Amino acid sequence: MAKVKWSEINSERLRGRNFWEMYAYDNTSWGWKMILKNRSLLRNHIVYRLVDGMNTSALYDNWHIAGPLSSFISYRDAYDEDFSIKSKVFDVVVNGDWNWPMELVEKYPVLVSTPAPILSNNRRDKILWKKKSGRAVDFSVSEVFHTLSDDCDDVKWAGVVWFSQNIPRHSFILWLAIKNRLKTQDKFDWVEGNNPKCVFCNLQSDSHNHLFFECSYSKKVWREMKIVANFDGVPDSWDSIVDWCENVNWNRAISSVVQRLVLGASVYFIWLERNLRIFQGKKRNVSDLCSIIKNVVRARLIGLKILRTDKALEVAKVWNFCLNEGLNEYNSKQRWIMTEDCLMFVDETICLNVCDSSWYKYGGLRYWASFY
């Protein structure tokens, strides 16, 4: 996401006017209209801690105990009393006393209902974020999110998708699958000429439940991966797998990490294989796909710093890598090379290509490249 300096917004959009008084004209860009439209959500949460008073609008900013003064002092009121709408708090406080126009004070006594703030010129005013509790804190995206979002229960399956050792692209596809948001063929029944059949077995409708893992092809992949990931007692139906994930206490143990990596990689590569068959006409058998999943999970494990325990040594033996050694002399015989546009797995004997069946040569070794 591009970052835009506030000075650029001020010069191009505000042009000296206050953000809270801006009007969204018809020829305004959609993005700017949305920002202006949502000002009401932020209005009471953005408050000012006065220091020198030179950067806080006396009329529009939320610094007074009564809230933004523009909520009850109209532009006509300010004009009649010869009060500039561009005035800062510094302009209405002189020598520690209020300096409001008398007619304005008579009409709105709340302006002087509290003592005038003590200003100091050694620092600038600070913008704070007011939480639902009323406490003002330093502004952060996290604070804004928690304040504006509705209170809701924690998602029970979140731990299986989002964890520090995950593979982001795998977690994203797994997240979509759990939420039933992948664009399977059953979602396009209304499209004329659409073939709803599964691209693997061509027997049942292409859906989440069939793809994960009722289909004969994906079921074979899943059952082989269940063995290496020690998924004892885990069902084969997708809804049951999601229910099972909700009841597991996921933690930082290596076995827990391996299981989540395997689940994410299995869903990701089955979805990728489905798309390759539909859109590119390329096919891989169950054995090749399982080898790819294992190699990708193994490569992720090699990059982790794992505490040397009996369980970790057992996992390292199953996945065939040296614990806590990274890309050492042993692991370098089967290694990953990251280039600008692809991730390559290099091996002296294992040679698989995630995109097609072509063989490549690299420094005397053969490799397969995964273009993500």
Rank of each mutant, 00 (worst) to 15 (best):
F213W: 14
R277N: 05
H45T: 11
V93G: 02
W271H: 11
K311H: 11
V297L: 03
V93S: 09
K3W: 04
N55I: 05
K156E: 10
F345L: 07
E192A: 10
H64I: 05
L69Q: 00
K220R: 06
L304Q: 11
V47L: 02
V242E: 02
I306E: 07
W222Q: 08
K226S: 14
L176P: 00
S357P: 01
V51D: 02
G67F: 03
I127W: 00
D80Y: 12
V89S: 01
V297W: 02
L307P: 00
W319G: 06
K131C: 14
K333I: 06
D243C: 10
S332R: 08
N195K: 10
I73S: 02
D61N: 06
R76P: 03
T147V: 06
V262C: 07
T147H: 04
D356S: 15
I254E: 03
F321V: 08
S171I: 02
Y360P: 03
L128I: 01
K132A: 11
W271S: 11
A265R: 01
P101E: 13
S40R: 13
Q334C: 08
G264L: 07
K361T: 15
E325K: 12
P109R: 07
Y372F: 04
T339L: 11
S205Q: 11
M102S: 12
E81V: 12
R260H: 10
V257W: 05
Y362T: 09
H208R: 07
D154R: 15
N275S: 10
N44Q: 13
L301R: 12
E348D: 14
K5A: 15
Y48H: 15
E340S: 12
T309R: 06
I337K: 04
S29N: 11
N18Y: 12
D52W: 03
A58W: 01
D347E: 01
Y75G: 02
K33D: 02
W238D: 01
F231E: 00
V257E: 09
N18G: 12
I85T: 10
N121T: 15
E246S: 09
V242S: 00
S240A: 15
K107I: 08
K37M: 10
M22D: 05
V191K: 11
W30H: 11
A158E: 05
D243T: 12
L148K: 03
E325A: 13
F200N: 03
G53T: 06
K88A: 06
A24P: 08
S133Y: 00
